[in-house]
Lab assay of single mutants.
Amino acid sequence: MEVRTIKVFTTVDNINLHTQVVDMSMTYGQQFGPTYLDGADVTKIKPHNSHEGKTFYVLPNDDTLRVEAFEYYHTTDPSFLGRYMSALNHTKKWKYPQVNGLTSIKWADNNCYLATALLTLQQIELKFNPPALQDAYYRARAGEAANFCALILAYCNKTVGELGDVRETMSYLFQHANLDSCKRVLNVVCKTCGQQQTTLKGVEAVMYMGTLSYEQFKKGVQIPCTCGKQATKYLVQQESPFVMMSAPPAQYELKHGTFTCASEYTGNYQCGHYKHITSKETLYCIDGALLTKSSEYKGPITDVFYKENSYTTTIK
């Protein structure tokens, strides 16, 4: 009895394709271990004539594949690729409408935090270190965002349907971005203890939790000093293409032309909904596939993004 075979390709990165001759009487799992086709788990399936010449994702289970996976995804987590594939199996079914010149995501599976993050990423200057993220990001900007969303979920250790947080998501993504040249110098002034300067680099240099107003941050924000008295913390120097200011959701007025974009969060910790506000020729609110415009805006804002380049204080 002759062994019926077909020729397929296996890959971990969709760049390096490895030619395989597979036995049609055995499952993919018996031949390769966990195997995925377009995100779908085909591990328990036997090869079919229609699979001839198709590319299958496999887990990096030998040295060659491990090197290829690390170079593309910059992670050695053995569960990463499987999590990416199972997320992709959902995100490829989502709709990605162009809204006001940006790629958004039609609401499904509690994905409003991903839509808000995706919209924000198209408006701030950011370059990702893992080629996987950078490639998928370019495709997302062009309207094909399924891979990018699935990668975000995998890097953030999230599953489809789980509630997510924009600030946490951005923080994970910033860790995989090139923020080497970003720098922030802060000064804390206390009447009792004097003053202390701190220099922050990388992710810490672009994120701040405690106030939404970048102007206020430049002037000074009140913080408790270690001595128990009130101290003032203010920005001395900022070198970065953008800054992200966050605070627990509270009524906040966004003035046209003073910011790049913002995240609105309605609801409580267990259950809520994100919308995205962007400042173009007027203010726009993007909620999944829905767009509304207004000249002014007041609502429960939790993150505001500002364009920056270089700032030095005039406070002496």
Rank of each mutant, 00 (worst) to 15 (best):
G272I: 00
S294M: 15
P60D: 09
K95G: 09
Q251W: 13
N187Y: 06
L126Y: 03
T282C: 09
P34L: 11
G82N: 10
A69L: 12
T169C: 09
D38A: 10
V166Y: 06
G161R: 04
P131A: 05
C225D: 02
K201T: 15
A289V: 12
Q196H: 13
H256L: 14
L114M: 08
A140H: 05
F242M: 00
A117T: 09
T75H: 07
K255T: 11
L121V: 14
D23N: 11
L291R: 08
L59V: 15
F80G: 04
Y172A: 10
T258R: 09
A250V: 10
I152S: 02
T302H: 00
T302Q: 01
T159N: 10
V243C: 05
V8K: 04
V8D: 03
P241R: 06
T314W: 13
C149S: 06
V166N: 03
L37P: 04
A250G: 13
V22I: 10
A289I: 10
Y284R: 00
G82M: 14
H176L: 14
H18E: 10
V185N: 02
V166M: 08
T116E: 04
S246R: 05
M24D: 13
F217T: 05
C112W: 01
F56D: 05
Q31S: 13
R83H: 07
A150F: 02
H176P: 02
K46H: 13
P241W: 02
Y208S: 14
A115L: 05
R184E: 04
Q30T: 13
R184K: 02
E204Q: 14
M209C: 15
R139C: 12
A150Q: 05
E253C: 07
A154H: 02
Q195K: 13
Q31E: 08
L163N: 05
T232Q: 08
P300K: 08
F148H: 03
G194D: 02
G267N: 07
V21Y: 15
N157P: 02
C285V: 13
Q197G: 05
T10Y: 13
L200C: 11
T64H: 09
L212M: 05
Q195R: 10
T232W: 11
Y297P: 00
G161I: 02
E52F: 11
T198A: 10
F128K: 03
E168T: 13
L114Q: 04
P34T: 13
L163Y: 15
I315R: 15
A40L: 14
I301Q: 00
E281A: 06
Q251K: 10
Y57C: 09
